[in-house]
């Protein structure tokens, strides 16, 4: 990878860390949506359904509280709670990222209504 590209990537990462919720409005989202939380949360939908609405045996997030989701993810991360695959995923996120994901799914159903 070229040096210019590396510098650019570094710049975007620093910038990303400084993006705060509320400052950027998306057309169909409320001011509460944090763009970083949103991008982290989109990943989850591939197994848990769009907006966390599962149509299968995999648990739904829709309608669950941010506190519950944050606790569950942290327990998967620490190994306190058993799962086949979530333990492997949860380890990939910092506590702050977990909080953002939980906040996104804990409020998306309110924003939709």
């Amino acid at each position: 990878m070229g040096e210019k590209m590396k510098l650019l990537l570094a710049a975007v990462m620093v910038f990303a860390a400084s993006v705060h919720g509320g400052s950027e409005l998306m057309a169909d989202e409320t001011a509460a949506v944090n763009p970083r939380g949103q991008i982290l949360a989109f990943s989850c939908a591939s197994c848990h359904g769009t907006d966390g609405k599962s149509v299968s045996i995999i648990p739904s997030f829709y309608g669950k509280s941010p506190e519950y989701l944050e606790m569950a993810l942290k327990d998967f991360k620490s190994g306190k709670r058993y799962s086949t695959v979530m333990m492997r995923h949860a380890k990939g996120y910092t506590d702050e990222e977990i909080r953002l994901i939980a906040e996104y799914y804990g409020t998306v159903w309110q924003n939709n209504n």
Partner: peptide, 28 residues
């Protein structure tokens, strides 16, 4: 699919005059 979502979000931000946020990608 993960890349499709990251790209969609980046394009929307570019259209709004914002810089894309750092991507988060997953595979299982």
């Amino acid at each position: 699919s993960s890349q499709g979502k990251v790209t969609a979000a980046a394009i929307v931000r570019l259209f709004h005059g914002d810089v894309p946020v750092a991507p988060s990608l997953v595979n299982t």
